[in-house]
Design a protein around this nucleic acid. Structure first.
Length: 263
DNA sequence: AATATGTCCAACCGCTGTTAG
DNA sequence: GCTAACAGCGGTTGGACATAT
C-alpha cells in the first residue's frame, strides 16, 4: 500500500554532471519521455536520484531553454515583476519565455540586486533607502541618488500599470494596452536618461492620453524644485484624466495612474 | 608566480502543497 | 481520512574561474 522511499541515497552520485550522463538522460527522455522521475535513473542507466535528473533536465538540458546574457528588456521585466511578485521565481520565469527560474534567481542575486543596492534602492521593497539620500554628499553620490529616485518611481509606476491593467474593469485598460502595443505612434524615445543632479520633477515630456502636452520648456532645469511642485499641483492636477505617460531613458513608461498627486 | 579574495552559477537541501495508495 | 512519496519551489552552497594583491 505505502510507497517505497523515493531513492536510496547510498551509492548515488552527486555534484557536476558529466557529458556522458547528460547524453544518457537526454537520449532517454527524447525517446521515452521522463515519465516517473523516480524510476527514470535506473531505466536510463544513471547513478543519480530522480530529483537530480529532474533538475538537470529542467534547468539545463531541456531543448526550449535560452541560455546566455539577459537582454535589457528581460532585465527590466525581471525588475518589474520582482517589484510585483517578490522572490516568486517560477512566477517570474513564466513571463520570460525560455528562461528558468533558477537562472533568473541567479541573475537577480549576482547582478540586479547588487546594482539596485548600489543605486540606493532596497532590492526587497524596491523603494529608496532614505538614509542614502540624507548622507550623500559627493556629486557622484548625489547623481546616483537622483537616478535611483527616478528609477524607483518608474518601477513603481510600471508595477502599478501591470497590476491595474490586469483588471478588466479598469476603464483605461484598452487605452493603456494600445499605448504599450503601439509605441511607434508616440514620439521617438529620448536617447539619454534624465541628466544627473536634476530633481524628479524634471520630467522631460508628459502626455495626456487624449491630447499631448509637452512640458519640456516648462520644466526646464532652471525652475526651482518648489516652483515645479507648485506647477505640478496647480496645473497638472486640473486636468481631467489622472493618467500620465512619461518618457525616460529609452522607452515610454507609465508615469502615474489613479491619483492626481505624486507626493 | 603564488596566494587571497571575489564572482558566478549549477546543483543540492529542505520545505510545502499535491497526489496516490 | 491518513500517510508517505512526488513534484515544485526558493534558499543556500561548493567549486570553478577571474581578478587583485
Amino acid at each position: 500500500m505505502d510507497r517505497s522511499p523515493c531513492c536510496d541515497k547510498v551509492g548515488l552520485k552527486k555534484g557536476q554532471w558529466t557529458a556522458e550522463e547528460d547524453q544518457k538522460l537526454m537520449a532517454y527522455i527524447v525517446e521515452h519521455g521522463h515519465g516517473s522521475w523516480r524510476a527514470l535513473p535506473a531505466k536510463a542507466g544513471l547513478q543519480r536520484c530522480g530529483k537530480s535528473c529532474r533538475l538537470r533536465w529542467a534547468n539545463y538540458l531541456r531543448p526550449d531553454i535560452k541560455r546566455g546574457k539577459f537582454s535589457l528588456q528581460e532585465e527590466q521585466t525581471i525588475i518589474q515583476l520582482h517589484a510585483l511578485l517578490g522572490n516568486r521565481w517560477s512566477a517570474i520565469a513564466a513571463h520570460l519565455p525560455k528562461r528558468t527560474d533558477n537562472e533568473i534567481k541567479n541573475y537577480w542575486n549576482t547582478h540586479i540586486k547588487k546594482r539596485l543596492t548600489k543605486m540606493g534602492i532596497d532590492p526587497v521593497t524596491h523603494k529608496l533607502k532614505t538614509h542614502a539620500l540624507c548622507t550623500s554628499q559627493s556629486k557622484d553620490t548625489a547623481n546616483l541618488s537622483h537616478m535611483a529616485q527616478w528609477e524607483s518611481a518608474r518601477l513603481e509606476a510600471e508595477a502599478r500599470f501591470i497590476r491595474e491593467s490586469k483588471h478588466v474593469s479598469n476603464p483605461y485598460h484598452s487605452q493603456l494596452q494600445l499605448l504599450h502595443n503601439h509605441k511607434a505612434t508616440y514620439p521617438p524615445p529620448l536617447a539619454l536618461p534624465p541628466p544627473p543632479g536634476r530633481p524628479y520633477f524634471d520630467i522631460l515630456k508628459v502626455w495626456h492620453l487624449t491630447w499631448m502636452v509637452s512640458l519640456t520648456t516648462l520644466l526646464e532645469a532652471t525652475m526651482e524644485v518648489s516652483k515645479r511642485k507648485n506647477y505640478w499641483n496647480s496645473v497638472l492636477n486640473s486636468m481631467t484624466l489622472p493618467i500620465w505617460v512619461g518618457l525616460c531613458s529609452n522607452r515610454p513608461f507609465l508615469w502615474y495612474i489613479g491619483s492626481n498627486t505624486r507626493d
